[in-house]
Design a protein around this nucleic acid. Structure first.
Lengths: 189, 189
DNA sequence: GTTTTGTTACCGAACGAACGGTAAAATATA
DNA sequence: TATATTTTACCGTTCGTTCGGTAACAAAAC
């Protein structure tokens, strides 16, 4: 395998992720992707013969496995609930850089395109996220339905706070969401 | 003023709104905008000398005044609170077509571009929405700070439910948000 | 009451630039 | 040498934008 490349597989996907997340699919031109990865357009096509669409697909695939390994699975320990919820808060805070970054799921969702090339992956990630939170919420005797509803609401609040933070140019909404998360998820008012 | 136009000012902005809302700023090509408005590219430039950017700006301006006249102001009557909240629910349901449509504020927010051409208008609309809901929430003796927090949370839930509905291809999340809205805003648990 | 002039709305054609994508040569790794 | 990777140069298409001109209507001039 001949490689003199200055950029590794992980960093490559990371750079692509960043561009797609910050500019959306249409905004992510090959010039920007090339610039940000340090690879020429043709080099990108060597690694992703399927072009821009394949890049976005692989970004979503990596995002899914990353979330599974670094967020969903670590939440499944037998540590105390409050400890795990605190871990969730920390992970989300890091994942979205305190509300500065948008969510790639939102940025790659095309409104008109319900059967778009990414619809399946996006849907699966959303459902996995809700499921993970739901398991957290129901592990203290809470009814399954109630826990699921709380999990869905937390996901709504998460993405809503990100939209609001981006729209108002302030991280405050996201920070307030993180603060309210434990009570929202566990239902202690 | 000579005019043989087939499309009125209102319908024009409406068509442009639809395209920007469904495809985002980058996705809204002049070809699509031309197709959807029934005006040739050159004709669009006659009405909007500033080009695509001016179109989006005017769409946002019309959106802002529309919301003020048709949502914020009608909420300021002296009708019973529950009646007004019910009105809010109906208006939101119609505005987003039951969760089928995305929000143009989200679609025109560019992540990387905190000082983008639409940032000010978007921020203003978000804050006006929160303010309108906040007034509703505090008109029953609720403390100002509490009402404001509830209003912000409702806005988060609104946009989060839209993101989730779009991402999962289901209107359910938005519907569940609408159902929960009164309790969320007025704090009756 | 015509004719002229000016204004407004619209369109077809074209512009340069950038788009996503490709082929083959060049270069690095093994 | 053989293979993997990057590079250079280019393809056709579409992008946002502009230009020249035409049809319709209103005001002014005759």
């Amino acid at each position: 395998m001949g490689r003199r490349s200055s950029i590794g597989e992980g960093e490559l996907i990371e750079a692509l992720s960043r561009v797609f997340r910050d500019t959306g699919y249409d905004g992510a031109t090959l010039s920007i992707l090339s610039e940000e990865t340090g690879l020429q357009r043709a080099s990108l096509y060597h690694r992703f013969p399927g072009g821009k669409e394949q890049m976005a697909k692989e970004v979503l695939a990596v995002t899914e496995s990353w979330l599974t390994e670094n967020l969903f699975d670590p939440l499944k320990t037998d540590a105390p609930i409050d400890e795990r919820v605190q871990l969730l808060v920390q992970k989300l805070d890091a994942l979205y850089s305190g509300g500065k970054q948008a969510c790639i799921l939102n940025m790659l969702s095309s409104a008109s395109d319900y059967e778009g090339p990414f619809a399946c992956a996006i849907k699966r990630i959303f459902e996995a996220l809700i499921e993970a939170l739901s398991q957290l919420a129901t592990e203290q005797g809470t009814a399954k339905a109630v826990g699921q509803a709380r999990a869905e609401r937390v996901v709504m609040l998460l993405h809503g706070s990100l939209v609001l933070s981006r729209g108002t140019g302030s991280q405050k909404p996201f920070e307030r969401f993180l603060e309210a998360l434990p009570e929202e998820l566990l239902g202690r008012h």
